[in-house]
C-alpha cells in the first residue's frame, strides 16, 4: 500500500498539478491567471508522458560505442513532449497576446468586468 502511494509519486504529482491547473483555468476570473493555470495543466501532461517513458536505472538512449548492452529509457515520449512543449509555448504566447489586446480595448483583465462591458456593447448594437 505504502509502496503504491510512494512508489508512484510522479503520478501523484501529475494529478495534483493537473487538478490545480484545471481549477485555475475554470475558477479564476483574471485572464492572465487563466493562462498560468493552463500552463500548469499542460505541464502536468508533460510530466505524465516523461514518467511513462522512464525506465528505472535506464540512461539516455545514445548508442554506446563500446557495444555494452545498456538499459535505455524510451525516447519517444520525450520527443513527443518536445513537440507538445512547443505547442504549449505557442498557445501561451497567443493567449497572452490576446490578453494584452483585451486589456487595451476593455481596460481590464477581470472576466466579470469584461462581461459587464460586453453586455453594454450588446445593448448598443
Amino acid at each position: 500500500m505504502i509502496e503504491t502511494i510512494l512508489g508512484l509519486y510522479n503520478y501523484w504529482i501529475v494529478i495534483v498539478l493537473m487538478m490545480a491547473g484545471f481549477y485555475t483555468v475554470i475558477a479564476r476570473g483574471n485572464l492572465a491567471k487563466k493562462i498560468i493555470g493552463l500552463n500548469i495543466f499542460q505541464t502536468s501532461v508533460f510530466l505524465l508522458y516523461i514518467t511513462m517513458g522512464y525506465v528505472r536505472g535506464g540512461t539516455a538512449p545514445i548508442v554506446d560505442p563500446s557495444g555494452e548492452a545498456t538499459l535505455y529509457t524510451n525516447p519517444l515520449p520525450s520527443v513527443l513532449i518536445l513537440t507538445a512543449i512547443v505547442v504549449g509555448i505557442a498557445t501561451t504566447a497567443l493567449g497572452l497576446a490576446l490578453a494584452v489586446r483585451i486589456r487595451e480595448s476593455h481596460g481590464t483583465l477581470e472576466e466579470d468586468e469584461i462581461l459587464a462591458i460586453e453586455d453594454r456593447m450588446d445593448g448598443e448594437h
Partner: peptide, 19 residues
Amino acid sequence: PRAQTAAYRYLILGSLGAT
C-alpha cells in the same frame, strides 16, 4: 473588440480540449 475575448475563450477551451 469582442473578437479578442471570443478568441481568448476559444483558446482556453480549445487548449483544454486538446490537452
